[in-house]
């Protein structure tokens, strides 16, 4: 039986899953240094054992209602290609093995997240796990677009 291993996280009351193979580590919240001239959802950068890593707020990224960080907030460090990014999530609950047959295509209306960033929906006991496509979330073209939309990107004068 083919299974997927997912890291399960909570975001604005919904349960999401991220493919475990792209998750490097999960760390507690820490002070973030803001970087000017980046899109709103880029919280800034942190020091991860000598490496500088950008951190993005997933709530802001998906346009979900904002919330203060709490004791259960975590930074999930993910790696896609050459890009390493920390994602701020409300909490991380567990690692889940989900048989592939339990995964279904994304229905048209799911939570507040744009379906373009989703890989499908997994049924797990009585709950639904929304599978995030991290690569799409981090894709550079998306980043540039959002940058332009927010108007904070200015061409060199």
């Amino acid at each position: 039986m083919v299974e997927e291993q997912l890291v399960v996280l909570q975001l604005a009351g919904e349960t999401y899953g991220i493919d475990i193979s792209c998750v490097q580590e999960i760390i507690r919240m820490q002070p973030v240094t803001r970087v000017p001239r980046t899109p709103q959802f880029v919280e800034g950068v942190i020091n991860l054992r000598g490496r500088i890593i950008p951190v993005i707020d997933l709530r802001k990224r998906f346009g979900l209602p904002l919330a203060e960080a709490t004791g259960s907030s975590r930074i999930m460090v993910v790696e896609v290609g050459a890009v390493v990014v920390g994602l701020i999530v409300d909490s991380v609950s567990e690692v889940l093995r989900l048989p592939q047959e339990n995964i279904e295509p994304t229905p048209p209306i799911v939570s507040g997240v744009d379906t373009a960033y989703l890989r499908g929906v997994g049924k797990w006991n009585d709950r639904l796990v929304i599978l995030l496509d991290v690569a799409k979330v981090l894709r550079e073209s998306e980043y540039r677009e959002l940058m332009a939309e927010q108007g904070s990107f200015e061409k060199a004068v």
Partner: peptide
């Protein structure tokens, strides 16, 4: 250190 590929070059930094 670089700000990484995700953020890239930022004017002034």
């Amino acid at each position: 250190k670089s700000l990484g590929d995700y953020i890239g070059q930022i004017h002034g930094l």
